[in-house]
Simulated scan of single mutants.
Amino acid sequence: MGAKLDPARTRLANYPFVLTMQPRFGDMDSLGHVNNVAIAALFEEARVAMNRAVLGASHVALPQERRPLPVVVARVEIDYLREVRYPGSYQVAVGVGRIGTSSIQQVCGLFEDEICLALCDAVLVHRGPTGPVPVPEPVRGLLTTMAFPAQVPATTT
């Protein structure tokens, strides 16, 4: 994310996809906070949900060679801005920050009542049988509909 926080990232309305989630009791640490690993899992689940919504519900169930976007996660960076407590209901928001030749940057925010609690950047690399390959144009077009900042109201699930 860099040394300076982008204020646009802390606004829920800027994300094109929003998933409401509840952490589990087992996600809590001894201080009553949702632990860092559980927060990373919330971000992961929301990224997968957005990809399934855009690329088809069977996207992750298909064999690797038949998926429209076979990817590996190359990098994840999380900034924890405020405490996340159990129990609670949170909105995990996702958008596509950038599409490179063979990579996709997904930007995410974790929100409670419009207050940003954490931000996440993930870089996914599109893979072929022998390594990175260009993101196919049809997939690129679909992912572009989820660009951050959102141009239309968020899709909430």
Rank of each mutant, 00 (worst) to 15 (best):
M1S: 14
A3I: 13
L5I: 15
P7L: 13
A8Q: 14
R9W: 10
L12A: 11
A13Y: 08
A13Q: 13
F17A: 11
F17T: 11
V18Y: 05
T20I: 08
Q22I: 10
P23M: 00
P23F: 00
P23D: 01
R24V: 10
G26W: 02
S30W: 02
G32I: 01
V37C: 01
A40G: 12
L42R: 00
E44N: 12
A46Q: 01
A46H: 03
R47E: 03
A49M: 04
M50F: 02
L55A: 06
G56P: 03
S58K: 09
H59S: 08
H59F: 12
A61H: 12
A61C: 06
E65K: 07
P68I: 05
V73Q: 04
A74I: 05
R75P: 03
D79R: 14
Y80W: 03
Y80F: 15
R82V: 06
R82P: 05
S89K: 14
Y90H: 05
Y90E: 02
Y90K: 05
Q91A: 15
Q91G: 15
G97C: 10
R98Y: 09
S102D: 07
S103C: 12
Q105P: 02
Q105H: 13
Q105N: 12
C108K: 03
C108D: 02
L110Q: 09
I115M: 13
I115T: 14
I115F: 07
A118E: 00
A118D: 00
C120W: 06
D121M: 13
V125A: 11
P129W: 06
T130P: 04
G131Q: 05
G131D: 05
P132Y: 13
V133N: 04
P136T: 04
P136L: 06
P138T: 09
V139P: 04
L142G: 00
L142E: 09
A147D: 13
Q151C: 11
Q151P: 02
Q151E: 15
P153G: 07
T155A: 12
T156R: 15
